[in-house]
Measured scan of single mutants.
Amino acid sequence: GLEHMADEEKLPPGWEKRMSRSSGRVYYFNHITNASQWERPSG
């Protein structure tokens, strides 16, 4: 619920959580730099 939404908002600017269609794993994508990574971004 609300706790999940608050957790999402802690991601650094530009980052969003996405799911890989090929593997079904969650990864993180930065739409500003077009960077993507499996680890949760910090800072």
Rank of each mutant, 00 (worst) to 15 (best):
S36D: 03
K10A: 15
Y28S: 00
R21D: 10
M19W: 14
N34E: 05
E3T: 11
W38N: 06
W38I: 07
L2A: 12
S42N: 11
Y27N: 01
V26I: 12
N30S: 04
S22C: 15
H31K: 11
P12E: 02
M19T: 15
E39R: 04
E3H: 11
P13V: 07
R18N: 02
P12F: 01
K17A: 11
E39D: 08
P12D: 02
G43H: 09
R21P: 14
D7E: 13
E9M: 08
A35Q: 15
S22I: 14
S36R: 15
S23Q: 09
I32W: 06
G1M: 12
E8S: 10
Q37G: 01
N30H: 04
G14D: 04
H4W: 10
M19N: 06
N30T: 00
I32E: 10
R21C: 15
K10L: 14
A35D: 09
Y27E: 05
I32V: 09
F29Q: 02
E3R: 08
R25T: 07
R40I: 09
S36V: 15
D7F: 06
H4M: 13
P12R: 01
M19V: 15
S36G: 07
G43L: 13
W15N: 00
T33W: 04
P12V: 01
E3W: 01
R25N: 06
H4S: 11
P12W: 02
R25P: 03
Y28N: 00
N34L: 14
A6W: 10
K10I: 14
E16G: 04
L11P: 15
E3I: 12
K10E: 14
Y27I: 05
S23V: 05
E3A: 13
D7W: 05
S23P: 04
P41F: 01
M19H: 10
N34M: 10
W15G: 00
W38P: 04
N34D: 04
G14V: 01
W15R: 00
D7C: 14
G24S: 05
R40F: 12
P41H: 01
A6E: 14
Y27C: 11
L11R: 00
P12T: 01
H4E: 11
E3K: 08
E8D: 14
P12H: 01
R21M: 11
W15Q: 00
G24R: 07
I32H: 10
W38F: 09
E39N: 06
V26P: 08
R18G: 02
P12A: 03
A6T: 12
I32A: 08
Y27D: 03
K10G: 13
I32S: 06
G1K: 13
V26S: 05
A6I: 11
N30F: 02
E3M: 05
E39Q: 08
P13D: 09
N30V: 03
Y27P: 01
E3N: 10
N34H: 15
E3Q: 11
M5D: 13
N30E: 01
Q37T: 04
R25D: 08
E16W: 02
V26K: 04
E8T: 09
S23F: 08
Q37A: 04
M5C: 15
G43N: 11
P41A: 02
H31S: 15
S22T: 12
R25L: 10
F29R: 03
M19G: 03
S42V: 12
W38R: 07
L11C: 00
A6M: 12
N34T: 06
L2M: 14
G1Y: 12
K10Y: 10
E39V: 06
S22M: 07
H4Y: 09
M5W: 12
S42A: 10
Y27T: 01
H31A: 12
P41I: 03
K17I: 10
E16P: 00
L2C: 15
M19Y: 15
G1P: 12
A6Q: 14
R18S: 04
S36A: 13
N30D: 03
E8G: 09
W38D: 05
T33V: 03
W15S: 00
G14P: 13
S22Q: 11
N34G: 15
W38V: 06
E3S: 11
G1R: 11
I32D: 07
G43R: 09
S23T: 14
E39Y: 06
P12G: 04
D7T: 10
W38Q: 05
D7P: 10
H31F: 14
E9W: 05
G1Q: 11
V26W: 11
W15D: 00
N34A: 06
Y28V: 00
